[in-house]
Structure formats: C-alpha cells, structure tokens
C-alpha cells in the first residue's frame, strides 16, 4: 500500500484527510506564520457541518460571529488579506443581519483553499519539514 506521506503529495485534500498530514502541514504553516489559513479552512468545514436541528440558533450565530471576528474582521490577518473584499462584505452582512446560513463561509473557504493549493501546499511539499519526514 502507498505510505500516507506519498498520498499527501497527490492533492491538498489527500493531505487534509490525514491526521498526521494535517499535523505536519500545520507545523510548517506555523513556521511561516500562517497557520490561521488552515484553522480557518477547518472552521468553515465545521460550521457547514452543523445541522440546523442539532444546534441551537444562538450557538450557530455565536460561532459565525467568532469566525468572522477572529479571521475576517482583522484586516491585517493572513486570512482576511487573502479573501476578496466582496466576500468579506457578504460575510459581514450575514453576521450583521443575523442571517446565518451553513454555506455563508463557502466562498471564503474556496478562496483560502485556492491560495493554499497555489502557494503554501506546493511549498510545503518541497520544504525540509516534509522531506525530512519522508
């Protein structure tokens, strides 16, 4: 069978589908001061997975606000700098109007994902931390 670390090189999703892969990628991103990219990506996935039924409205609103405050609002943050202004306005609008939709972070997540696929992920695959691991 293919060792996991070779699978990690197939695609970003293969990497993010494996606990050890996530851990190593996060360590790399921490060195580059951009671990928030990964945390935000997972926060968006987690938010989308919340079922309207098994989670109170207040909790979803509180979580949406927390994600917005931590990653989108701070214009100096790495995540905020990589999200398009229109996408940020859309999220801000959803939070202010309290129109909390499971898909409200989808576009922002896609933008961060594209950025990781084009940038941090290929750099990770050539990094010492990955090469030493393999």
């Amino acid at each position: 069978p293919t060792p996991p670390y070779l699978k990690w090189a197939e695609s970003l999703h293969s990497l993010l589908d494996d606990q050890d892969g996530i851990h190593l990628f996060r360590t790399f991103l921490q060195q580059e001061n951009c671990a928030d990219l990964l945390d935000f990506w997972f926060a968006c996935s987690g938010f989308r997975k919340l079922e309207p039924n098994d989670s109170k409205v207040e909790k979803r609103l509180k979580l949406a606000k927390a994600i917005y405050k931590k990653y989108v609002l701070d214009s100096n943050g790495i995540v905020s700098r990589q999200i398009k202004p229109a996408t940020k306005s859309f999220i801000k609008d959803c939070v202010l109007r309290q129109q909390i939709d499971p898909a409200m972070f989808d576009q922002a997540q896609m933008e961060i994902q594209s950025m990781m696929e084009d940038n941090t992920y290929p750099v990770f695959l050539k990094s010492d931390i990955y090469l030493e691991y393999t």
């Binding site: 606990q19 997972f42 996935s45 987690g46 909790k59 994600i67």
Partner: peptide
C-alpha cells in the same frame, strides 16, 4: 457558557478526520 475560543476550537476539531 462556552467562550468564543472554545466554540471555535470545537468547530475546528469537528471538521478534522478521525484517527486512521
């Protein structure tokens, strides 16, 4: 009452893959 950070952390963890 959960703090915002706890809520965020719980959300991030819920999206991570389970152990192989």
């Amino acid at each position: 009452i959960d703090s915002e950070d706890d809520l965020l952390q719980e959300c991030i963890s819920s999206a991570m893959p389970k152990k192989r």
